[in-house]
Nucleic acid binder design. Structure first.
Lengths: 148, 148
DNA sequence: CAGTATCCCTCAAGATACTG
DNA sequence: CAGTATCTTGAGGGATACTG
C-alpha cells in the first residue's frame, strides 16, 4: 500500500511530494547534490547513512527523474549523480525549508551556514515566495481553502 | 539516535526541518491546518490516519510550537488546533512543495486542486522564490556550495 | 570505489477497544 | 467528540561482509 499506489491516486500535490521525498534521506541527498556532491562515497560520508539505504535512495531518485547518472566529470572512470532539470527545480523547496529552519529551529546566535548570492556576495536570507506581480505571498493573501 | 539528539546537534537547517516535519503526516497536518481544518476528527477524516498516530503528531506539532490548542471558535466546548505564527511561516514550504508537485508529479491534464488568489480570483500558479530585489532566484544565481 | 547481499532490530503505523 | 491504551505488523534503517 505504500508509495506507488498512494502517489498515483493521491490528488494532492503536497501529498505526492511527501510520499516521494518525505523520508529521512532523500531531501538531504538532493541538498547535497545542490551542494556539488555527486559521488556515492561523498554522499555516504556527508550523510552518515548506511550504504544500502543510500543505494536505495539514489536509485529511487534516479527513477523519479530527480537525479541522473553520468560519467564523472573528472577523468575518474566512475559515475556521478547530478540533478536533472526536474531535480534542480526542487531548489525553492530546499530554500524554503532552509529559511524556515534558520528562523525557527536555531537559538539566537546559534551558528548555521549562510546562503549567499554568488554575484553580489550578499546573503540571500530574505528570499520569500512571491506572486508573479512581485507581491510577497502571505497566508492571508491566498485562498487557503484550496491548498491541499 | 532519533529526533531529539539529531535536531539539537544538526548544524544544517534543512536537516533539522526534515527531522521535525519529515515524516508521512506532519506536513499534511500543517497543510490541512492552512486549509482551515482544526478539529481532531476533521484531520482524521481528511487524512485517514490512525487516531493514535494523529494524536501523537498533533502533540509533537504543538510541542514544536507549530500548532496551538485553543478553545473552538464555534461554541462547541471542544478544542481546536490552529497554526501559530511559527506554523504559518511554513506556508512557503508547503507552497513550494505544492508547486513542484503540480509541475512534476502530475500527468498532463491530470486534475489537481488550484491555489487561487483570494482577491483577484486569478490562479497563483506562477509563484516562485525571489530575491529581495525581485529577481527570480534560480540555482545558478546562488552559492549552492553553502546550501547545506 | 561503488555498490550488493544479508541479517537484525527498532519504531512508525495501523487496528481496535476503551474512556471522560 | 476527542482522545488514550494496547497489540501487532512491516517497512525503514543500521551493521557488516562481500564483489566487480
Amino acid at each position: 500500500m505504500p508509495s506507488e499506489r498512494i502517489a498515483e491516486e493521491e490528488p494532492c500535490p503536497v501529498a505526492r511530494c511527501v510520499d516521494l521525498v518525505g523520508d529521512r534521506w532523500s531531501l538531504l541527498i538532493v541538498r547535497d547534490a545542490f551542494d556539488g556532491i555527486g559521488r556515492f562515497s561523498e554522499f555516504q560520508r556527508s550523510l552518515g547513512v548506511a550504504r544500502n539505504i543510500l543505494s536505495d535512495r539514489l536509485r529511487k531518485l534516479v527513477d523519479a527523474g530527480i537525479l541522473e547518472n553520468r560519467a564523472a566529470s573528472d577523468g575518474s572512470a566512475y559515475q556521478e549523480y547530478v540533478l536533472t532539470a526536474k531535480g534542480e527545480s526542487l531548489f525553492p523547496v530546499v530554500v524554503a525549508l532552509r529559511q524556515w529552519g534558520e528562523q525557527h529551529l536555531f537559538a539566537k546566535g546559534e551558528a548555521h551556514s549562510q546562503l549567499v548570492d554568488k554575484r553580489s556576495g550578499r546573503p540571500l536570507a530574505r528570499m520569500a515566495p512571491q506572486a508573479r506581480d512581485g507581491r510577497v505571498l502571505r497566508p492571508a493573501d491566498a485562498e487557503v481553502r484550496k491548498l491541499r
